[in-house]
Design a binder for these strands. Structure first.
Lengths: 169, 169
DNA sequence: TCCACATGGTTGGATGTCCAAGTATAGTCC
DNA sequence: GGACTATACTTGGACATCCAACCATGTGGA
């Protein structure tokens, strides 16, 4: 799984698609498959950097989201919306972060249905250190050129917006 | 998890990064996060289309890979390389596809370590029908403009190549 | 006031992915 | 030929994600 292949398997698939007569769909199929693979490569790199902190990317994202709020706390449901993952994924992440002493749960003062996730001092500290590591070891040199980064941001924002992720400005 | 947010949470994160003084890393961070999210959105769409066929994307990919080989068969390890997933993921997928009667396992005639995965007639038929559905319901209108598709293919191919996915041509 | 419906969170189940470790078979080198 | 190393696959374990179902709490209308 680690040796480079002699040729790009996605380009190969694209040619196969064309040969079968799916000319219109060949390029979009290749683009979609490339996104899948790129996500996987990036995730592996990120998780590698986070491993020394005993964090996964999912838990890191939650921790960092909390660190950017005013009071270091957020309703579970709000975290779910902002991270755009299923509520059960948040429950799962919070369970583990709480077991590690990085966050705790508190009742919402107004709405008894709601649970607040709250950063602990340890959690805040770890969020900072993990972010420093990611900035240093991943985001300072992703492997994308500067122009590519701008293109990706634009193209993918348009896609996400059109897919209903967020309202048109 | 389904209501659109009022603003783009990734653009928000990018601004937060800049405000904290990580100007250099802000845009790459946003690009990486956008790839993660886009992958998730695409995956949800694809799995939605495949659900009626009782296929997941992982199993679909294996089935289709086999359908594009000359004899409809491949060593497990070769499938692992071409799909660029861990060997255990292939074992897992083959177990389930085999239980569904879509593939079977056969010993390799030369190398007794090797197991061949082989498409059954049912498997070949389902691969064809699932591909038609994906071409019709996903790849004919991904939500990317034609120019974007070309950009993505180029940018992501460069990234994957540089990450060691495949050799320089 | 009371019931229907919406919202917030959790539990249980299915899947997929990776890693570590173990077994079996091949290949290499002295 | 025999030992060492490499390759192929599987098993067991840790995580994450989603979905379906369930319980508790809020809200709004008759």
């Amino acid at each position: 799984m680690d040796q480079p292949l002699p040729r790009d398997p996605i380009a190969e698939a694209q040619r196969n698609w064309q040969r079968r007569g799916w000319e219109q769909q060949a390029a979009p199929m290749a683009a979609v498959t490339a996104i899948m693979r790129t996500q996987q490569l990036l995730m592996l790199r990120i998780e590698g950097v986070l491993r020394p902190f005993a964090l996964t990317f999912a838990r890191y994202e939650l921790l960092t989201l909390l660190a950017f709020t005013r009071r270091g706390e957020l309703p579970m449901s709000r975290a779910s919306s902002l991270l755009q993952v299923h509520p059960t994924s948040v429950t799962n992440a919070v369970d583990r972060l709480q077991a590690a002493g990085l966050v705790d749960r508190a009742p919402h003062p107004m709405d008894r249905r709601t649970t607040l996730v709250r950063l602990t001092p340890d959690g805040r500290d770890l969020a900072r250190r993990a972010t420093d590591a990611l900035n240093r070891d991943v985001f300072s040199d992703t492997g994308f050129e500067a122009d590519d980064v701008e293109h990706l941001i634009r193209i993918l924002a348009r896609f996400r917006q059109q897919a209903g992720d967020f309202a048109a400005e």
